[in-house]
Design a protein around this nucleic acid. Sequence first.
DNA 1: GCCAACGTTGGC
DNA 2: GCCAACGTTGGC
Length: 171
Amino acid sequence: MKSAPTKPARPAAATPAAWLLKTEPEVYSIDDLRRDRRTGWDGVRNFQARNFMRDAMKVGDPVLLYHSNAEPPGVVGLGRVSGGPRPDPTAFDPRSDGHDPKSRRGAPTWMMVEVEFVEKFPAIVSLEVLRAERRLAGMPLLARGQRLSVQPVSREHLEVVLGLARAARRA
DNA sequence: GCCAACGTTGGC
DNA sequence: GCCAACGTTGGC
């Protein structure tokens, strides 16, 4: 008798404990997320980043929110995956910067998750501070040439970053 | 504004 | 499938 092997549709990769999401504060800042409480993380147009959102991010996962193209750049707060994945509607919108005519509603190319606000750190944990922290050696964000806007963060690295944020609170 | 690093595109 | 050209990211 033929029986379907009980393998998952996609390999169950080791699930990172957390994620890092880059955003340009002039486009969408931690303050915007605090105001909105939750938002669809739309506009991601990189396949690897999309795959993380589509295949690996789970509701409840913590997310570090990172301001890029900012002065200074750095981690500014904490959020949480609150929904998704689902198609990125901006890909279907001809008026949107993220419009992609190759993405169809029946077969969407671009996916997003929903992210909810948890906290804004009392002070930014700047890229300079992150780089100076030896326990963060190996964090993907700090790798040479790293441009991905959605990145995995290990439990250990998450704890270190949160510790740096708390240290800033005491300072 | 510069430019290194990386992804995508398209000719062949 | 190779690879040059081009576009984007994002720190500095």
